[in-house]
Simulated scan of single mutants.
Amino acid sequence: LRNSSSSIISAFDMGISDEEWQRLQKAIDWPIPDQEITHLSQSTSPVHSTFSIVGLKESYKVGEKISVIITARDHNKNLKRYGGDYFKAKLFNAKLKASVYGEVVDHRNGTYSVALLLPWEGQAQVFVRLEHSSEVVQILKKYRESSFPRTHFSGYFEGPGPNKTRILEVVECNLKWGADGSWRKGDCCCEHKDIKTGTVWQCERPKKLSCDKLVRHSGGRLENPLNLFEQQLFTQ
Rank of each mutant, 00 (worst) to 15 (best):
N76K: 13
V100M: 09
D85L: 07
L117M: 08
Y101N: 05
G83M: 05
K80T: 05
F153N: 09
N76V: 05
V137Q: 04
S113I: 02
A124S: 11
L79H: 12
F157L: 04
G84P: 01
V114G: 02
V100I: 15
G102Y: 00
T111N: 06
Y82P: 00
E145D: 11
Q125V: 08
V136D: 04
D106T: 07
E135T: 03
V128R: 08
E158C: 07
S146L: 11
L79V: 07
G84C: 00
R73P: 01
R150S: 15
V104T: 09
Y101D: 09
F153R: 12
S134A: 15
V68R: 09
D106A: 06
F148S: 15
F148K: 15
R73G: 01
F92W: 10
G110R: 02
H107T: 06
G122V: 07
S154L: 15
P149M: 10
S133W: 02
V100F: 04
N109G: 05
E121L: 05
N76Y: 09
T151D: 12
S99V: 09
V128Q: 08
A124Q: 03
R108V: 14
P149C: 09
L96N: 08
T151E: 14
F127N: 11
Y82A: 01
S134E: 14
A98K: 15
W120E: 06
K80F: 00
Y82N: 02
A94W: 10
E103M: 01
I139Y: 02
E135M: 00
R150F: 11
V105C: 09
G122K: 09
A98D: 13
Y112L: 01
N93Y: 07
V114P: 01
E64T: 01
A115Y: 00
E145C: 02
G83H: 01
G122Q: 07
H75N: 15
S99M: 13
